[in-house]
């Protein structure tokens, strides 16, 4: 049976993709952000996962408002990073793992989660930037695992509750642990932390709330399910609702985790940027 090694979270800001492309790793603005990743690289090099489940939120590339799935699971042989409207150079396709995708879909629907399955799914910066951060040169990295993208809706309200996100992860854990292959899996939760791009409150960042979330998600994620969705918008900013992806990841790790790495830096672009590496017991 498969084993979940741990989970890694990171912000997935488009500007980071740009900074990677320009190799601004030692630039004074970027260095405090990129300093959060060498420990993740070491851990991945030591553990070499076979699969990566990348939980992110689509930003208007894979889905439009005509059909907006609350939880979508990719089930493709490969995932293409297409033009998001900014004409940035796109990357070669990321290899998929459709047999694991369909196992997750079968298991989670049986567990009463209503999943939208996607045999084609263009992936945007929410999926790609974390891959580039964790596996430099991705997808052209010898250790690049095959991937399953999972996208949750944070574009349009109503969005899932924090409790539902955590429960999703718990169900995902059951699915992954019952995958009949002696494989190692890592789960990513991407997006956040606090930021707001729109309205008169644009530029809002909330360090105190981000720290509260970082603190609790490690050993006390249930506490965070008390936060209502509107409270999340109020405290994390309109786009800080991406924290739901972190909750989904956390649910998949089980009760006993140890914190290997944490980094937090303000601002990266308009965002309070957080990175966390949790290892399963």
């Amino acid at each position: 049976m498969a084993k979940i090694l741990g989970g890694i979270t990171t912000s997935h800001i488009p500007a980071v993709g740009n900074a990677i492309q320009k190799e601004l790793f030692d630039d004074p603005y970027w260095k405090p952000f990129f300093d959060g990743y060498p420990k993740v690289h070491e851990w991945l090099a030591a553990n070499k996962p076979d699969y990566v489940v990348n939980i992110y939120n689509d930003h208007g590339l894979g889905f439009f408002l005509d059909r907006m799935p609350t939880f979508a699971v990719g089930a493709a042989h490969e995932y293409r990073n297409e033009d998001e409207g900014w004409g940035l150079p796109s990357l070669p396709p990321f290899p998929g793992a459709p047999e694991l995708s369909w196992h997750i879909i079968e298991s989670m629907v049986a567990d009463e989660f209503d999943i939208t399955s996607c045999q084609e799914l263009p992936v945007d910066h929410g999926f790609v930037v974390p891959m580039q951060l964790f596996w430099p040169g991705a997808p052209n990295n010898a250790d690049m695992p095959r991937s399953v993208p999972i996208s949750a809706n944070t574009v349009q309200h109503p969005i899932p509750t924090l409790k539902r996100a955590l429960d999703f992860g718990v169900s995902l854990r059951k699915a992954l642990e019952s995958f009949p292959e002696d494989a190692k899996i890592v789960v990513l939760g991407t997006g956040g932390l606090s930021h707001q791009l729109d309205g008169e409150r644009a530029g809002f960042i909330n360090k105190e709330f981000d720290q509260y979330c970082l603190e609790n998600i490690v050993h006390n994620p249930t506490e965070l399910t008390k936060i209502s969705r509107m409270e999340l918008v109020e405290k994390a900013g309109a786009q800080g609702t991406e924290f739901l992806m972190w909750m989904m990841m956390r649910g998949a790790l089980g009760d006993n985790v140890s914190e290997i790495n944490r980094n937090y830096h303000i601002p990266v672009s308009n965002t309070g940027a957080g990175t966390l590496l949790l290892e399963c017991a």
Binding site: L61, D66, G85, P158, R201, F204
Partner: peptide, 27 residues
Amino acid sequence: IPGTTIFDGAQAMKGYNLNKMCFSFNR
């Protein structure tokens, strides 16, 4: 929430064509 518009069903209906146009700019 001051300075914040909740993009809900009402806004999604109101802005559908505008957002659809912007979605087309992926190409």
